[in-house]
């Protein structure tokens, strides 16, 4: 598998580490135990397009949100995490 890092270009799988589902959002401070439990444990088992976090640790160390089809492994989009490349915020 190859992932097109928005910063580095197309790279081989071995440079990346998979984390998991990128859909759940970390609840804000003060959230209930149930909300945090859902965030940590509840996952959909999608046959089709999913978005997931990958870390380009063997490259530029950017966290990426990859949209991948679990049936075909086709990657339809790769976005950088909000905090990767934040020097341009406000520019």
């Amino acid at each position: 598998m190859r992932i097109v890092c928005p910063f580095c270009g197309e790279r081989e799988l071995g440079e990346f580490t998979y984390l998991g589902d990128a859909k759940p959002m970390r609840p804000v401070a003060g959230a209930s135990e149930d909300e945090v439990f859902d965030y940590v444990y509840l996952r959909d088992n999608v046959a089709g397009e999913t978005s997931e976090y990958w870390y380009h640790g063997g490259g530029c160390r950017a966290w990426l949100k990859v949209t991948r089809n679990t049936l075909t492994h086709e990657i339809s989009s790769v976005e950088a995490a909000a905090g990767a490349g934040a020097a341009k915020v406000g520019a």
């Binding site: 580095c8 440079e15 063997g58 490259g59 530029c60």
Partner: peptide
């Protein structure tokens, strides 16, 4: 230039 890995080494 490239930030990459060789032999699992950054």
């Amino acid at each position: 230039a490239a930030a990459t890995s060789m032999d699992h080494t950054s």
